[in-house]
Amino acid sequence: MNQYFSEKIKVVSFFSIILVLYIHSGFHDYPHEIAGMQFNFLLQDIISGEIGRCAVPMFYMISGYLFFLNVESINDVYHKMRKRVHTLLIPYVVACLFFPLFYLLLEVVPGTKQFVNSASFSEQLQQPVADILCSLFYKVKDGGSPYAFHLWFLRDLILLVCISPILYYLRKHIHKGLIVGCLFLLTLTEIRQYVPVFAAFWFMAGDAFLIDLKKHKSIIILFLFLGFSIAELSYDSVAWRWLNISITALGVIGLWNLYDCLVGVNFKLKEHSLLKMVCGFTFFIYLFHEPTLNIVRKLLVVILGNSSFGFAVAYLLSPWLFILIAIPIAVLLKRWLPRFYMLLVGSRN
Rank of each mutant, 00 (worst) to 15 (best):
L332H: 15
F41H: 07
M1D: 14
A199H: 07
A249P: 02
Q114W: 11
M342S: 11
A148V: 04
R241P: 08
Q124T: 03
S48L: 08
L233T: 00
A119R: 12
M37F: 14
L167K: 07
Y259I: 05
W152S: 12
Y235N: 09
A208G: 02
S16H: 03
L42N: 13
D45G: 00
H86K: 10
M342E: 00
D45M: 01
K215F: 08
K334G: 04
L337Q: 14
G254D: 03
I253T: 11
V263H: 11
F14A: 06
C182W: 12
I325E: 01
L136V: 07
F121R: 02
G144K: 14
G264W: 06
P291Y: 02
N117E: 13
W336M: 15
V11H: 02
C54N: 11
Q124L: 15
L316Q: 04
F59G: 08
V302R: 15
V94M: 14
L332N: 10
Y259D: 08
G52E: 00
L104Q: 00
P196Q: 04
E271D: 13
T112L: 05
K217C: 09
M58Q: 13
M277V: 12
G49R: 00
V195I: 12
C279D: 06
K141G: 11
L151M: 10
H79K: 15
F288K: 01
S234K: 05
G280E: 02
F67C: 04
A148G: 04
N2F: 06
S164D: 03
S118E: 14
L269R: 04
V12R: 01
L287I: 07
N2M: 05
F209S: 03
R155Y: 05
F153M: 03
N306P: 08
C96D: 05
N244C: 10
F98A: 04
V129E: 04
V238K: 09
F225H: 00
K268I: 12
V265T: 12
I158W: 10
R171G: 09
H86E: 05
V301W: 01
L332S: 15
S6A: 13
I323P: 00
Y103I: 06
F41S: 11
Y78P: 13
V109R: 04
V109E: 02
L188K: 10
I46Q: 00
L21A: 05
I230D: 03
L133W: 06
V302I: 12
L224F: 08
W242E: 14
C182T: 13
K298W: 12
V197I: 06
V302Q: 15
V12A: 03
R348L: 08
I158F: 10
M58T: 13
A119E: 15
L293W: 01
E123T: 06
S218D: 05
Y194K: 11
R348M: 08
K139R: 13
F309Q: 11
F228Y: 11
V263G: 07
L255S: 00
N40P: 10
S229M: 01
I90E: 05
Q126M: 13
I18C: 15
W336F: 14
H175I: 15
H175A: 12
L275R: 05
V71N: 09
Y30R: 11
A119K: 12
V93F: 13
K176L: 08
F67T: 01
Y341L: 06
L275K: 02
F340D: 08
F223R: 06
L43D: 00
L88K: 03
S308V: 06
V140M: 09
F149D: 12
M277L: 15
L337N: 14
W152T: 13
L69D: 13
Y315H: 04
P110Q: 10
G181D: 09
